[in-house]
Design a protein around this nucleic acid. Structure first.
Length: 987
RNA sequence: GGGCGGUUAGCUCAGCCGGGAGAGCGCUUGCCUUACAAGCAAGAUGUCGGCGGUUCGAUCCCGUCACCGCCCACCA
């Protein structure tokens, strides 16, 4: 056949079209809705013996919360609905910012959530995955301002109202884009419950929280030194400041001591321009060098202002000169020192980081220009003692990267200590669990050292602070509802605080504000606390911590049980993806090229929970190939079902055969043209071999005549259930990568490479019809089960293929999760197949070494002295012959004469001979075997040494010793066999 | 200055409770074998960063050093 006739994924699947179609269908049929799967036509519970909570079927009726959309209030009818006894599973989606589009990090985050929700849904739980977006105050505002700037306008030209109107437009545009992207990724979230941090319900929650905290004295207003971004012209919180190490200078400046000419206090500073705001010089109280200076006065150069020399323990005598200039208005340490000593605060930098009037001759200069001028002027005055190179951390705005300026201003703060305590406790006593656990430490360290949270922002886009000031009596009024008149003086002259809240204030309420709080809604009762929060390790402080303490404060309970933290996605060189580097990758572009399933699966594998992922395109190709493998395995299955004489038979078999793996169940439906050759076994002891496997011929399939599964069928069934058990366990442990990898290996290595190859003769009708029917049935069942295991990871291709296979129900999404049944594990079948596989591999190896092409049959002689193995070989010789392309297989024990002209291999318990009349260079063969023997000798010696070691025998556990003994016995066997062969060759 | 992660095949990374060193890609050889050449079969490749320690036994546990990366931090 010519290559162009072959079929691969790309030629037929057309991922994009298929994906769009399937997603629309899922969505329209309401499969994503929480509390409503009952009427979605699920078959859950029907066949799914082990599937939990199968009760879904009957509890119809409850209409999902489609109507609950925007306004939180009463999604009432939905989930809490009495009588739905299914266990619940809830995730609120970390709301993407409406600043732009989703990046690869989002794709990873959403994929993890989708996997968990799809899996839990298949397990029969009532699943809520609530989507939404974040208004992202400063970030979005900056984007829109940027856009305006390109048009040559500023927000002030528009005014607050018009500006906000434009931001809403922006929001709509990007919201839609994000929603589309989530769909493209396959996210099975409940769109009927979608929320936005600035929608009516969330805004109400924000106000409720602010006012309540205010009333509890946990929010206060005050003049403090805060982080100020001169570009964004707003405050930012401590965690919004990014410290970067930069090389700068340490200027040593002489401050003349008053009344003592020639006497100086030399201070060292990294920011000479702030000296204009100095109100003291500080030294350590025990610093002998300066003991007699304390209490004296120095003249502040340039301004000639008199300031005191004070003693304070904050000074490190070992640093710089041991004397520090104190600028309370522009440095956090100095601010605090100033408070201790009652020093004045002189603000010399304004909101644009220009020098103020108080800076005298420098007024109006930018901070850096002022720095240059001041250094020059000091030099001219001979007051600059020296300049040292100096490394120090400089704070930058996390949004615009501008150097942050500490600045005194009146702001609103949340008192953190009382709120942090319960949030610390919750993690310590395990009510809130981090996965991986190490992130708990990061969280605790922050929470234990947290400072009050500055929540006011000088922005327009966000939740307005619910405080009004009376223009007449000056009262400040904090209210849930907008007041009409001043409650103090009764006049209507009220003006609302112009500031808005930190964007994280509203996202901190996300797990309950989205469920309808402060109303006591059914959704809130049903789904709070949520099951798990999935997010990146970069926002543990920003978001996870805030949700934790706000949830505890307002709901009295943690907002989620588990926090699943994943790493960041790095580029192929290990750098963080960022806009400035231009190394970001658009997930949609990747999906267009490879399909959503491929992207999802790739993001889930090749990393460990919590660790960063270095992204490489080559890995996408590998996954794409896996998709192709799935496609073709399914195509193969379908082709062979269609070829079945009745078709109906195949389907009937498929239906009934699901649980037939016990080996007894299906007796009736296969027509019994019984015993073709129950005793074809070669060596005498075959029949009753310890394995208990029914005897067989060609591919061991004659067992099927009695309606029993052949060895291969039992083997793959056992392997499948083992796989399902392990995959389920990995998912329970949130090890999504391990789960994905496990199915990958099962499908490719075991189902495709071995099972499908094994049953081809049966499928092609070379054996009995019963045998063929059972092979078809087992293959179909196993494939369908594997698709189910794969579905959470690759929703589209699995759905598409599932629809083509014989199936029940409407969608694979709602079929019972194959948890794996320990009762169907079949150690004997696995052991027997293990022997087959080992033997086949050895035989293939020989063929390969002696260049026997695949088309060429070659006989095999298999010798063993072990009766158990002999029995298995007898049963399996059909398999071996088929897979190793052997013409005739001769079985025997070592009394049988070994062929002279033959290549040899030895595996555990079996000698394998490939007779090659005239083809074997006996000398070369001897050399090859000798080398092999040497290797085994090494193994043997090592094992013997170990087993002769008294300490080992005395202290190692019995099973380890037994294992080592078995290994030694095996090695000795192989060695003896090789040596016997060698002696023979040398004769 | 603290804390965390990493160091395993040429590359990217898995390796749970200590006993077998692994996967994918790449590489070598042979194959268009009636599901798949995006494939099949057979191979090669490692001081598991260094040094100590614990142990019958260490890639795994402990200590220490080195290098890479990240986070936190008010030493001007």
């Amino acid at each position: 056949m010519c290559q162009k006739d072959k079929e691969n994924l790309a030629t037929v699947y057309g991922p994009k079209q298929v994906e769009n179609r399937l997603y629309e269908r899922w969505r329209q049929r309401g499969y994503f809705r929480a509390g409503a799967t009952a009427d979605a036509g699920t078959t859950a519970g029907a066949a799914g013996g082990s599937a939990a909570g199968s009760a879904a079927g009957t509890l119809a009726g409850v209409t999902a919360g489609a109507a609950a959309a925007g306004a939180a209030a009463d999604a009432g009818t939905t989930a809490g609905a009495a009588g739905d006894s299914r266990e619940r599973f809830a995730i609120v989606m970390p709301p993407p910012n409406v600043t732009g589009s989703l990046h690869l990090g989002h794709a990873m985050d959403e994929t993890e959530q989708d996997i968990l929700t799809r899996w839990r849904r298949m397990q029969g739980r009532d699943v809520l995955w609530l989507p939404g977006t974040d208004h992202a105050g400063i970030a979005t505002q900056a984007k829109v301002e940027e856009k305006l700037a390109q048009e040559g306008k500023s927000k002030y030209d528009l005014g607050r109202e018009e500006f906000l109107r434009q931001v809403w437009q922006w929001k709509d545009q990007y919201h839609d884009r994000i929603a589309r992207q989530l769909g493209t990724l396959g996210c099975s979230c409940d769109w009927g419950r979608e929320r936005f941090t600035l929608d009516e319900g969330c805004s109400r929650a924000v106000r409720e929280v602010f006012v309540t905290l205010y009333e509890k004295n946990l929010i206060y207003q005050g003049d403090y030194l805060v982080n100020w971004c001169p570009k964004c012209r707003t405050t930012i919180s401590d965690i919004e400041v990014e410290h970067e190490n930069e090389s700068g200078f340490l200027w040593h400046i002489r401050y003349p001591v008053k009344g003592e000419p020639g006497c100086f206090a030399v201070v060292a500073t990294t920011r000479p321009e702030t000296m204009l705001g100095d109100t003291a010089v500080a030294v350590h109280p025990e610093d002998a060098r300066y003991a007699d200076l304390v209490g004296k006065t120095v003249i502040l150069p340039l301004l000639n202002r008199e300031i005191p020399i004070i003693a304070d323990r904050m000074v490190d005598p070992a640093f710089g000169t041991g004397a520090v200039k104190i600028t309370p208005a522009h440095d956090i340490n100095d601010f605090e020192t100033g408070l201790r000593h009652g020093l004045a605060q002189i603000t010399v930098l304004d909101e644009n980081a220009r020098m103020t009037e108080l800076a005298g001759p420098y007024a109006g200069l930018d901070r850096y220009a002022a720095r240059e001028r001041i250094v020059a002027d000091l030099t001219a005055l001979g007051l600059l003692e020296k300049i040292e190179d100096h490394q120090h951390a400089v704070g930058h705005c996390y949004r615009c990267d501008t150097v942050v300026e500490p600045r005194i201003s009146r702001q609103w703060f949340v008192k953190m200590r009382p709120l942090a305590a319960p949030a610390i406790q919750a993690v310590k006593d395990g009510r809130l669990r981090f996965v991986p656990a190490r992130f708990a430490k990061v969280y605790l360290n922050w929470m234990e050292n947290v400072r009050d949270w500055c929540v006011s922002r000088q922005l327009w886009w966000g939740h307005r602070i619910p405080v009004w000031y009376c223009g007449d009596c000056g009262a400040a009024i904090c209210r849930r509802e907008t007041p009409a008149i001043c409650p103090e003086c009764g006049r209507p002259n009220l003006k609302q605080d112009p500031d808005v809240l930190d964007t994280w204030f509203s996202s901190g309420l996300w797990p309950f504000s989205t469920l309808g709080w402060p109303e006591n809604t059914a959704d809130l009762r049903a789904y709070y606390p949520t099951s798990v929060l999935v997010t990146g390790r970069d926002i543990i402080f920003f978001w996870v911590a805030r949700m934790a303490f706000l949830g505890l404060e307002f709901m009295g309970e943690v907002p989620f049980r588990d926090v699943l933290i994943h790493g960041l996605i790095l580029d192929s060189q290990g750098r963080k993806m960022s806009k400035s580097l231009g190394n970001g990758i658009d997930p949609i572009e990747l999906i267009d090229a490879y399909g959503a399933d491929t992207l999802r699966f790739t993001l889930m594998t090749g990393t460990t929970p919590g660790n960063d992922l270095r992204f490489q395109r080559e890995r996408l190709e590998a996954t794409r190939n896996f998709c192709n493998k799935i496609w073709n395995a399914s195509r193969f299955t379908l082709m062979n079902l269609a070829a079945a004489e009745t078709g109906a038979g195949a389907e009937a078999g498929a239906e009934a055969g699901a649980r037939a793996g016990t080996g007894t169940g299906a007796e009736t439906d296969a027509d019994a043209d019984a015993d073709a050759g129950t005793e074809t076994g070669a060596s005498g002891n075959a029949g009753e071999a310890g394995t208990g496997i029914a005897a067989g011929g060609e591919t061991g399939a004659e067992a099927c005549a009695g309606g029993q599964l052949a060895l291969a069928d039992r083997w793959i069934t056992s392997r499948f259930h083992r796989c399902a058990l392990e995959v389920t366990a990995s998912l329970e442990a949130y090890d999504l990568g391990a789960a994905a990898q496990r199915v990958y290996e099962f499908l490719w290595d075991e189902l495709c490479d071995w099972y499908i190859e094994l049953i081809k003769p049966r499928l092609y009708g070379k054996e009995t019809p019963a045998s063929r029917a059972l092979a078809q049935r087992t293959l179909t069942e196993t494939l369908r089960g594997t698709l189910s295991l794969l579905h959470p990871f690759m929703p589209f291709i699995t759905e598409e293929l599932w629809q083509h296979l014989p199936h029940e129900g409407e969608t694979i999404m709602l079929t019972p999760w194959p948890a794996g049944d320990p009762a169907l594990l079949d150690e004997k079948a696995e052991a027997a197949m293990g022997l087959v596989m080992e033997t086949v591999k050895a035989a293939r190896n020989l063929r390969s070494q002696f260049n026997i092409g695949p088309g060429k049959k070659a006989d095999l002689i298999l010798l063993t002295d072990d009766p158990g193995i002999a029995g298995d070989l007898a049963i399996c010789q059909g398999y071996i012959a088929h897979l190793a392309a052997a013409g005739h297989i001769t079985l025997g024990d070592s009394r049988r004469e070994r062929p002279r002209q033959a290549a040899t291999a030895v595996v555990s318990g079996v000698e394998i001979f490939l007779p090659l009349a005239g083809l074997v260079d006996m000398a070369a063969e001897a050399a090859r075997l000798k080398k092999e023997a040497e290797k085994i000798k090494g193994e043997t010696r090592a094992l013997e040494g170990k087993l002769a070691n008294g300490a080992f025998l005395a202290k190692a556990p019995a099973e380890v010793i037994a294992k080592e003994e078995a290994k030694l016995a095996d090695a000795r066997y192989r060695l003896a066999a090789l040596e016997a062969r060698l002696t023979m060759l040398e004769d």
